[in-house]
């Protein structure tokens, strides 16, 4: 692992009304590494990643990308710094086909007219690069399974060539085989040198793809473990707040 982190969060604080959602969190992200972010509901995982994705602005603290102090007033600013997030709701258009969703908002067109053939070809290439199998690229996304939809959302985010890719609960609603496919996909993305942040409640998934795990508790990062140095029991006790940091 390189000594210099790709992205560093320092002393991030965020308050919603009277609730201190984050109380000074430090976090480093490294290229080609998957960081698992765990913690109970309302521990601050989502708030932290949303700050990184530009959805919320921190009250205090700094975001350092490649050594430079940056501010993300909106998601576009984060995207400009090549930080992508796959939201839990996936942000797909159910009535539009697979190729159309992959190219949503940046359609391949010639003087305003869609080049559907070119989009399907490019989509096939995009999916093949991540070894995602979708037989029919002209099927509407609404007709696909949960795992396929998740794969498309991840492929779409990965196609922006991000430095950091945040995934919020990508495996929570999936069947066994689909979870495997998504975990494999995360490994492929990681192998491209992307820093992956994985929020999940499924602790067993962490041990399959993550290199490092950060545990959040009541708005603080209470522990950070390399994957080889921890166990399921250790994580559980940290998450419920009974373990030592």
């Amino acid at each position: 692992m390189t000594a210099e982190p790709l992205v560093a969060l320092r002393g991030i604080e965020k308050t919603f009304g009277s609730i201190a959602a984050l109380r000074g969190v430090d976090l480093d992200l490294f290229a080609g590494e998957c960081l698992g972010l765990v913690g109970d509901n309302a521990a601050g995982k989502s708030t932290l990643t949303k700050i990184l994705a530009g959805v919320h602005e921190p009250d205090r603290g700094s975001i350092i990308v490649a050594g430079e102090d940056v501010r993300f007033p909106d998601p576009a600013a984060a995207r400009a710094r090549r930080i992508e997030m796959v939201f839990q709701d996936l942000s797909l258009c159910d009535t539009i086909d697979v190729a159309g969703n992959l190219f949503l908002g940046r359609e391949i067109a010639r003087s305003g007219f869609l080049r559907k053939r070119a989009m399907i070809d490019a989509a096939r290439e995009m999916l093949a690069g991540l070894q995602i199998r979708i037989p029919n690229l002209t099927a509407t996304v609404g007709s696909l399974s949960g795992g396929q939809r998740q794969s498309i959302a991840i492929a779409r985010a990965a196609s922006f060539d991000p430095l950091v890719l945040i995934m919020d609960e990508p495996t929570s609603a999936l069947a066994v085989a689909e979870v495997e496919a998504v975990l494999t996909l995360i490994r492929h993305v990681k192998a491209r040198g992307v820093a992956v942040v994985l929020i999940t409640h499924r602790l067993q998934d962490l041990f399959r793809v993550c290199d490092r795990i950060a545990v959040m508790y009541e708005g603080l990062k209470v522990a950070e473990r390399r994957i080889g140095e921890t166990s399921l029991e250790d994580l559980v006790s940290l998450i419920v707040g009974s373990g030592g940091a």
Partner: peptide, 17 residues
């Protein structure tokens, strides 16, 4: 067949997306 038409459909399918 146009980008505009695709965007019309997208806005109706999922405004936030």
């Amino acid at each position: 067949g146009t980008t505009y038409g695709r965007h019309v459909t997208a806005v109706g399918a999922n405004l936030e997306a």
